[in-house]
């Protein structure tokens, strides 16, 4: 193999900063995909002592009320927020197709058996984590600009105002801040 230097490559792959970022996206994705598991709860509470004051039941109720029960206006799908002024808010809107195309372009499939739409917030955040693992800065910037930034801040604001638990207030604030800070960081880097 021409010019291959095993050691150098390994060093390159050990970019911890990026791993951490990717993980962070995945953690955020997790907050919106399911209720936190007991494990997660304990982890957050003890391991990094962020002292959640809510009970786990409270969080579960809050999750279901906000994200699962229809009609609360907080369904976490991009096409409900990021849409043209004249477009009706609907699932499987234009944004859904766009984002699905984005995934396809990067060779990522969504396991159809889960029945989840491609523009669910956790899918998008998870995909962002994936892009980081691929170290594709341009794609990250594009995805942030074209999708995440277009709706997640707004969505998070709404969650923040609707949430009954401290936990989801924190999560929504964190998510918004994180995304904005990410964009600042990436903008400088990619140019």
């Amino acid at each position: 193999m021409d010019g291959y230097k095993g050691e150098d490559k390994e060093d390159m792959m050990e970019s911890t900063e990026n791993t951490a970022r990717a993980r962070a996206y995945e953690i955020l994705a997790g907050f919106f995909s399911n209720e936190p598991t007991r494990e997660m709860f304990d982890f957050l509470n003890e391991a990094i002592s962020c002292s959640i004051e809510d009970t786990i039941e409270g969080i579960e109720v809050d999750f279901a009320t906000m994200f699962i029960v229809p009609g609360n206006g907080l369904q976490p799908f991009e096409s409900l927020y990021n849409r043209a002024p004249d477009e009706e808010p609907s699932l499987w809107g234009k944004a859904t197709k766009d984002v699905a195309g984005f995934y396809r372009a990067y060779g990522v499939h969504i396991d159809e058996s889960t029945g989840i739409l491609p523009d669910h917030i956790s899918v998008e955040l998870g995909f962002m984590g994936h892009l980081i693992e691929r170290e594709d800065n341009n794609a990250q910037r594009r995805f942030l600009e074209e999708h995440l930034l277009k709706w997640i801040p707004e969505f998070c604001d709404r969650v923040y105002s609707k949430a009954n638990t401290d936990f989801y207030k924190g999560v929504s604030k964190l998510t918004k801040e994180f995304i904005l800070s990410e964009y600042e960081a990436i903008k400088g880097e990619a140019r």
Binding site: A20, I27, S51, I110, G126, F178
Partner: peptide, 30 residues
């Protein structure tokens, strides 16, 4: 609950895949 970006990254750096739910839910088949 109060975590900052920095804090989140720190969690990311030390956490294991068991904690990161995005993976557990296996959205991205590939």
């Amino acid at each position: 609950m109060k975590i900052t970006r920095r804090g989140l990254l720190k969690i990311g750096a030390i956490s294991t895949s068991a904690i990161t739910i995005g993976r557990g839910f296996n959205l991205f088949a590939n």
